[in-house]
């Protein structure tokens, strides 16, 4: 019960944040951090719950970004043999959904292909997939404009009750949009993790042989979670593309995958709130450091913070905090006279 109240309070605090923290700079930071937190939430489903490390996760982010950007701007592409595909500009929300679908489709494809292998090979296959995607974005100039980048991408538009289709222009509106997608992603992942699928995934992470022997369809569940994770990452790419409003092959940069991994593992992989805590910490820290150190030193501090977290909190921040919380709670209980203690069920 207290858990529910606490989580409602947290959600309420985030929802009302633009009212008590109206500084657009901070909202801007939270929007960009939030976009990467959404991607980190999706990575956590794979890394934390299936134990499969996708080092090419940025591929799905980039596919979502490019699909949404291209559809919202419209494009024509020469398919060879005298065929051209001419697509008129679509509404942004529709392009955004198409981006999610496209990313999920690639997730299915990569999942089918990649789960023939496991562990380290899965890692490398996903890295290679992201590299191939980057090279396609770079060299298929006819479609993606290659390194010349697609710019002037429209801002997000949304159908709102009572207002019709509106363009989201203010920081607060964009913040709420990112928050809404983040909440949906969080609830979706939480739902999967707590369902039969989630239990199967965890069984699989712990002992694949055993899971197989009790009749869990390993590949089926792995592919399913890859599809969901890819779709969510695609959504985060779509948000990115309509917020930053330019997309170029740099969206496939390896450092973006690294950012997501840092968020997931420092927060605590395999915990639902881990990516959020890690994401807020490592999304905001670089900005807070700007005033206090030279550019290289900022990065050195960033790297050192990661090292220290692994050193002292090897399971991540959330599990460590949970342990401290439990100890405090136990301590608190001991101070309360026995007949007043609540019964632990």
């Amino acid at each position: 019960m207290t858990r529910l109240i606490l989580s409602l309070l947290v959600v309420l605090a985030f929802v009302t944040l633009p009212f008590w923290m109206s500084d657009p700079y901070i909202l801007g930071l939270l929007i960009l951090a939030g976009i990467f937190i959404i991607a980190a939430i999706s990575l956590n489903l794979l890394l934390g719950y299936t134990g499969q490390l996708s080092l090419g996760h940025v591929a799905f982010f980039g596919i979502g970004a490019y699909t949404s950007a291209l559809l919202s701007r419209g494009f024509d592409v020469d398919l060879g043999l005298g065929l051209t595909l001419d697509v008129a500009p679509k509404p942004v929300w529709l392009s955004f959904l198409a981006g999610i679908l496209m990313a999920a489709l690639f997730g299915w494809f990569v999942g089918r292909l990649a789960f023939r292998v496991r562990g380290a090979y899965f890692v490398i296959l996903t890295v290679s997939f992201a590299q191939v995607m980057r090279l396609i974005a770079l060299n298929w100039v006819d479609l993606t404009e290659g390194p010349m980048a697609i710019n002037n991408i429209p801002s997000f538009t949304l159908w709102l009750p009572g207002l019709g289709v509106t363009t989201l222009t203010t920081k607060a509106q964009n913040y709420w949009l990112v928050l809404a997608v983040a909440v949906i992603a969080f609830v979706l992942v939480a739902h999967i993790v707590r369902s039969r699928v989630g239990r199967a995934l965890i069984a699989l992470r712990e002992n694949e042989g055993l899971a197989r022997s009790v009749g869990i369809q390993v590949t089926h569940y792995l592919v399913l979670s890859t599809v969901v994770a890819a779709g969510i990452a695609g959504a985060s790419g779509g948000l990115y593309t309509h917020y930053v409003r330019i997309v170029d092959p740099d969206v496939f940069m390896f450092i973006y995958t690294v950012t997501m991994i840092i968020m997931v593992v420092t927060g605590g992989k395999g915990t639902l709130t881990g990516p959020i805590v890690g994401g807020l910490l490592f999304g905001l820290m670089p900005e807070l450091l700007r005033d206090y150190a030279g550019p290289e030193v900022q990065w050195i501090i960033y790297g050192a913070a990661i090292v220290l977290i692994v050193f002292f909190l090897p399971n991540g921040i959330v599990p460590a905090a949970a342990r401290i919380w439990q100890r405090l709670a136990a301590l608190g209980l001991r101070l309360v006279p026995e007949h007043l203690r609540p019964r632990l069920s």
Binding site: L32, V244, M253, P295
Partner: peptide, 17 residues
């Protein structure tokens, strides 16, 4: 940071703060 996302963060800091 040789990165378009950080370029956005940098100019928002310069303009807004």
């Amino acid at each position: 940071k040789s990165n378009p996302k950080e370029a956005v963060n940098a100019v928002e800091k310069l303009i807004l703060r």
